[in-house]
């Protein structure tokens, strides 16, 4: 007898947590936050990636933050710095399997891209994994303006510098 059949022999007729039409549908709908909103607006409207620089701690946080986590200085307008759209590949991984364990048709590459003193995780495209080298420069590719909606994925992906 398969595992699921054994289970359902005893529990098939009792409560399931998400029975259609009966459970309380609830989703999390987040706010970007004070810093997050400006960070995303700059991507959407201006194709710019911003960080915030704490001059006392000498750290440029990317993505931009409302405060320096080390000294609690509030990051005001003058702390916002355009870190450019070219970063360096700090690390990467290649995903070969879908979430359900089946093989991906095309493996996808996820990079940790260093911008300022922070890392942005994003897709790497227009390159095979074999051509990647840690430390190489990569450029952000933005979606066309009409398709951007104020999200991290308004940056479509990063690609190796040509």
């Amino acid at each position: 007898m398969a595992f699921r059949e054994r289970i359902e022999k005893n529990t098939g007729n009792i409560f399931r947590s998400s029975e259609e039409g009966k459970y309380f549908p609830v989703v999390s709908r987040y706010t970007a936050g004070v810093a997050g909103q400006k960070f995303l607006e700059e991507i959407k409207e201006n194709e710019k990636i911003f960080g915030t620089r704490c001059s006392k701690c000498e750290i440029t946080f990317v993505p931009a933050k409302l405060y320096c986590e080390r000294c609690f200085a509030r990051m005001e307008k003058e702390h916002w710095v355009d870190v450019g759209t070219r970063g360096t590949l700090y690390s990467y991984t290649v995903a070969y399997e879908e979430k359900d364990g089946s093989p991906k048709e095309t493996p996808s590459i996820i990079g940790a891209i260093k911008l300022g003193d922070g890392l942005l995780f994003h897709w790497i495209k227009e390159s095979s994994a074999d051509d990647l080298e840690i430390g190489m420069e990569v450029d952000a590719v933005f979606k066309p303006k009409g398709e951007r909606r104020g999200s991290l994925v308004d940056i479509d992906y990063f690609k190796p510098k040509k």
């Binding site: 706010t31 004070v34 909103q37 609690f72």
Partner: peptide
Amino acid sequence: RALETPKELSFEATKAAL
């Protein structure tokens, strides 16, 4: 409904207490 993220709300309260 606050615009601030949970981290940002925590920061504001903590900063005010300090």
